[in-house]
């Protein structure tokens, strides 16, 4: 039986690659979900705290410009979204829209790129002094 072969001997097999890819997608989505759960709670707290005295663009930028902690927090938030969302959307594309695995994967990559560019640009926009 094939059970005699060590597991790494067939690691290049497409079926094994697919299994590893599925396993990685699953645990990355789990890990990113944990990060997102914390980020969303903190984000809601910040929002409630931030609107105490009304909300103006000047007030927001006064708090965020040059604030490394703020930028780092929202950069992590964006990264977690960029990991979590495309994996779920790829599954939806395959199950509901009947897309091929390759099409779903390219769609997921495009979503990742879009979330990263738009999200990090937004973080930079409120962090960079004079932006």
């Amino acid at each position: 039986m094939s059970g005699a072969a060590p597991p790494h001997a067939v690691a290049s097999d497409p079926g094994v690659r697919e299994a590893v890819a599925q396993a990685k997608a699953w645990y990355w989505q789990r890990i990113s979900a944990m990060v997102l759960a914390a980020c969303v709670v903190l984000h809601l707290c910040i929002m409630i705290w931030a609107v105490r005295g009304g909300l103006s663009a000047a007030e927001i930028l006064g708090r965020t410009q040059g604030n490394v902690l703020f930028a780092a927090f929202y950069a992590v938030f964006v990264l977690a979204c960029a990991v979590h969302v495309p994996i779920g959307l790829a599954a939806i594309a395959r199950e509901w829209w009947r897309w091929s695995p390759a099409a779903a994967q390219w769609f997921a990559r495009a979503v990742t790129a879009t979330l990263l560019v738009l999200g990090l640009r937004a973080v930079w926009g409120v962090y960079a002094p004079g932006a």
């Binding site: 079926g15 094994v16 599925q22 599954a91 695995p101």
Partner: peptide, 19 residues
């Protein structure tokens, strides 16, 4: 059972347990 690794690969593949 002696086919644990092969079985994990079989169930982890496309349309397997992660679906």
């Amino acid at each position: 059972d002696t086919e644990r690794t092969e079985r994990l690969r079989a169930v982890a593949g496309d349309a397997g347990c992660h679906s």
